[in-house]
């Protein structure tokens, strides 16, 4: 079942991870990249993507990192999480990044595929 947390519509390539993301400890907010060498998205750029990952973890300040990604122009176009955590939810709410909950993490579309997220229709479909 999909649920809308922050409403919006956005296009981007799907960037999917099977690992939770610690935004404070593992993301470079200036460059918009994952810096944790142990993460499966290590070195990958988040800018303009539809970032699909299980959920955020770690420090409550991660919310500021989500906001800073947007302020620095390197934020994902939208996020899709399997479950909600406060930092990602509030960070997206302040930054205006569409956020949808989806246990299947965009099942049916390929990694890297250009897609449109539409929270009103609760869909992620090829663009």
């Amino acid at each position: 079942m999909r649920r809308t947390v922050v409403a919006g519509r956005a296009m981007g390539e799907v960037l999917r991870s099977s690992m939770p993301i610690n935004f404070l400890g593992a993301v470079d907010a200036a460059r918009g990249t994952i810096t944790d060498p142990a993460h499966d998205l290590h070195g990958r750029a988040l800018r303009g993507t539809i970032l699909a990952f299980p959920h955020g973890i770690g420090s409550s300040v991660g919310a500021y990192t989500v906001y800073a990604l947007k302020a620095n122009g390197v934020a994902p176009a939208a996020m899709v999480c399997a479950r909600a955590d406060a930092s990602v939810v509030s960070g997206c709410a302040i930054a205006g990044i569409p956020l949808m909950l989806d246990g299947g993490l965009c099942e049916g579309v390929r990694d890297g595929q250009a897609c449109t997220v539409d929270t009103a229709a609760r869909t992620v479909v090829p663009a």
Binding site: A29, V61, A63, Y64, Y67, A71, N72
Partner: peptide, 14 residues
């Protein structure tokens, strides 16, 4: 969200 090291200029401006 108090340490400049963590929230940086974007957070400070917010």
């Amino acid at each position: 969200g108090v340490n400049y090291n963590t929230i940086g200029d974007a957070g400070a401006r917010f």
